[in-house]
Design a protein around this nucleic acid. Structure first.
Lengths: 267, 267
DNA sequence: CGCGATTTGTGCACGGCTTCACAAACACTT
DNA sequence: AAGTGTTTGTGAAGCCGTGCACAAATCGCG
C-alpha cells in the first residue's frame, strides 16, 4: 500500500514516500528480520505469514498487517519471498547503510557491549569508545582506542556516529546525554538507571536491567498469591470474590506463546 | 481501591486480595520506585503526582491512575507519603523478600551482569553463575563460583533461585530455557537474540540489544526523510501529499518528554 | 480451462491504555 | 467557620493495537 520505494513517474524527481508505521509495528520488524535471516540460511526461499509468525513468536494476522504497512506484497497462495522481504525491512529500518555507534562509559557493561558479537552482521558497528576517566583513555579494545569525553564532538564528527549508547553510572548519564545531543547525536540508548531529558527531536530508549527483573518479580509474586488462593479455596470450597479469577495472559514484551509448539509449516 | 494489604475483618483468615494491575502499570511501577528512592534521599517526605511524573518521565494523570490501582491513597492537597509509597510498591512487586538470580552463560555479557552494581539495593542478588564450558567451571567472580549447567537443578534448589538470566549465544538459549523450566524456574530474562518457547505459566522477557538499536535506526531514518521532504518542499513550494505531515511523537518506550524542562514544582 | 487448496490483505469489532477535565477532599489562612 | 488554593481520584472520550473472519488472488493439477 505504501509503495515508498516504488519508481514514481520517471524523471519526475519525486520525493520518496516514507511509510509512517505504527510504533508497535516498528518494534516487531526487527524481530521478523532476525527470524528471516535465520530462515534464509536454511535455504528456504519463500515463507508464509504463519511460519514467520511462529518463528518470531507472534500471531500470523499481526505479521500480515505489519508487512502490509510496508507495501511488501506477498503472493497469495504462496507467501513472501524471503530475500525481498529482508531487503525491504532493512531499507525501512535504515540498515542499508552501516550505522556507527559510540559507547560512552567503558565500565563492566561497556566492555561487554564493545565485545558483543550481536551488533556486527546486524548493521551496526561500535566505532568509538569514550570515557571520562583519563586513566582509561588510550586503552585499546579490539581495534578501537578509548577517547576522552571532552573530545566527544570531534569523535562524533570524525567517526560519523549516529547513535550513542550510555553505559555510565546514573549520576553521569544526563551530562553525557547533553554532550551527545550537543555533538549532533539524535539517537540515544540509555542503560543507566535514570531518566534522561532531551530536547525535542532526539530519541531516547531506555534499557534498565533491574526494571526487567522487577517486572518478572511481580508476576512471580502474583503466581504465588494465586497458588495461595487456590490452596485456600481447596480447604474451604467457597466460590467467592471474582477479582482474581480473570484469565490473565502472563504478559511480557514478547509474550510467551501459549503452546509449546515449534510448528514449522502446514499439515 | 484495591486494599490488598488492608486488615480484613480481624480474625477472619481472609485471603489477601491481590490487585490485578494493568500490564502497562506494572512496567511503570519500577520506574516510579526508582524515582522515589532518589527523592527519598534528598530528604523530601511527601510528593505530588506532578513531581513524581516529572521524575519518572511520564504524565501526571498516568501516575495517579497507576497508584490508585494499588489502593495507595495519597492525601488531596498534599500528595503521597514517599516512604509509604515505596513500601507499597515494593510489596506489590514482590521485593520485600530478596530474590535470587542465576546467570547462565558467563561470557562477555554474563561477566558484566555479574558485576553490575545496579542489582543489589534493588532487591536482587546474583546467587549463581552457570556455564556449559568445563574450563569455566570453578572460576570465581566476586564471591560466587561458576557451576556446570548439568548441575543446574541442584543449584537452583540449593540457592533458592527464582529468576534465570540467559546470556548464552542464541544457539544455546532454547536448551538452557528448557533446563531452567525443568529445574522449576518460572521467570526468565533472555538476552540471547532469539525466541525461546516455554510452557504455559512460565514468564519470559526478552532484551535484544540489536533490536533496540534497530528501532532507533528507524526513527533516525525517518527524520532523514523528513528533512529531505522539507528541503524539497522549500525548493518547489507545493503543499501536496499529506501522508507525511502527521505530527508523530518520536515514540520510545519511555518517550522523551516534549520540553527540556526539569521543572520541579509549583507555578 | 476449471476447480480446489492455499494464503494474503483487510474490514470490523473489541479491549486496553491514555488523556482530559472536574468534583471531592484536604490544608492553611483569615 | 468560611474561604482559598492545591492535589487527588475517577468518569468519560478517544486512540491504538489486536485478532477474527472472510473475500480476493494465486498456484497446481486434472
Amino acid at each position: 500500500m505504501n509503495q515508498f520505494t516504488g519508481p514514481g513517474e520517471p524523471g519526475e524527481m519525486v520525493v520518496p514516500e516514507f511509510p509512517d508505521l505504527p510504533e508497535a509495528t516498528v518494534t516487531r520488524l526487527p524481530e521478523y528480520l532476525r527470524a528471516l535471516h535465520q530462515l534464509a540460511q536454511s535455504g528456504v526461499e519463500t515463507i508464509s505469514s504463519e511460519t514467520l509468525a511462529a518463528a518470531a513468536g507472534v500471531n500470523s494476522a499481526k505479521v500480515r498487517k505489519d508487512l502490509s504497512h510496508l507495501g511488501s506484497y506477498g503472493t497469495r497462495g504462496v507467501g513472501y519471498e524471503i530475500a525481498r522481504l529482508i531487503r525491504q525491512i532493512e531499507q525501512v529500518l535504515g540498515l542499508t547503510q552501516q550505522r556507527n555507534v559510540a559507547l560512552i562509559g567503558i565500565g563492566n557493561l561497556g566492555h561487554a557491549l564493545a565485545g558483543y558479537a550481536g551488533f556486527v552482521n546486524r548493521g551496526f558497528r561500535v566505532s568509538a569508545l569514550v570515557d571520562a576517566d583519563p586513566a582509561r583513555v588510550g586503552e585499546r579494545l579490539g581495534d578501537i582506542t578509548v577517547t576522552h569525553i571532552d573530545d566527544l564532538a570531534a569523535t562524533v564528527a570524525e567517526k560519523q556516529i549516529t547513535i550513542g549508547v550510555i553505559t555510565t553510572p546514573a549520576s553521569a548519564a544526563q551530562e553525557v546525554a547533553d554532550r551527545l545531543v550537543a555533538a549532533g547525536v539524535r539517537s540515544i540508548l540509555n542503560f543507566a538507571p535514570c531518566v534522561v531529558t532531551v530536547p525535542d527531536g532526539v530519541d531516547v530508549r531506555n534499557v534498565d536491567l533491574a526494571i526487567e527483573l522487577q517486572i518478572l518479580s511481580f508476576h512471580e509474586q502474583r503466581r504465588a498469591f494465586d497458588r495461595a488462593r487456590r490452596a485456600h479455596a481447596d480447604g474451604a470450597a467457597d466460590s467467592e470474590g471474582v477479582t482474581l479469577a480473570t484469565p490473565r495472559r502472563t504478559g511480557s514484551r514478547t509474550h510467551a506463546p501459549a503452546r509449546k509448539a515449534r510448528k514449522v509449516v502446514g499439515p
